[in-house]
């Protein structure tokens, strides 16, 4: 191994933490354009449109988590009415979906209560998806 290769390896070592730290803070926009919040050990990204909520789960390192192992519900406050909607996983496990009668108004508030997977304790997070 040459000295050049060694230098390259060292440079890569120094650059890597910079890449790793580019992760999603709470309240930011996620890769799908929704708001990101911490749910227990995971990050959740919530997208809202009329009648439908979509929740993507990511782990610490922002890798998608299989949603089929998660279960939970969403408390939705929209236009002065409150609903509790159950989440169901998409067949491919990419996200959780909850459907109900509500409108995606700017003052939409959603509290997601989730058991992210077997053996992980229940957690909840509050979203303001359209702010």
């Amino acid at each position: 191994m040459t000295r050049r290769a060694f230098t390259l390896a060292l440079l890569a070592a120094l650059a890597a933490p910079g890449l790793a730290s580019a992760h999603m803070p709470a309240g930011a926009r996620g890769p799908n354009g929704g708001q990101v919040q911490d749910i227990g050990p995971y990050h959740g990204e919530l997208l809202a449109r009329d009648g439908e909520l979509v929740l993507f789960l990511f782990d610490h390192n922002d890798r998608p988590v299989d949603a089929r192992r998660a279960s939970g519900n969403a408390v939705v406050l929209a236009g002065g009415h409150q609903h509790t909607l159950p989440f169901e996983a998409r067949p491919d496990g990419s996200a959780l979906v909850a459907r109900g009668e509500f409108h995606a108004v700017p003052d939409l508030r959603v509290v997601v209560q989730l058991v992210p997977g077997p053996g992980i304790s229940r957690a909840q997070a509050r979203f303001t998806p359209l702010r």
Partner: peptide, 16 residues
């Protein structure tokens, strides 16, 4: 190093 740093940096300023 990168492994260690990754562990350290994954949750800087951010503790759930």
């Amino acid at each position: 190093l990168p492994l260690a740093a990754r562990r350290a940096a994954a949750h800087a300023g951010h503790d759930h």
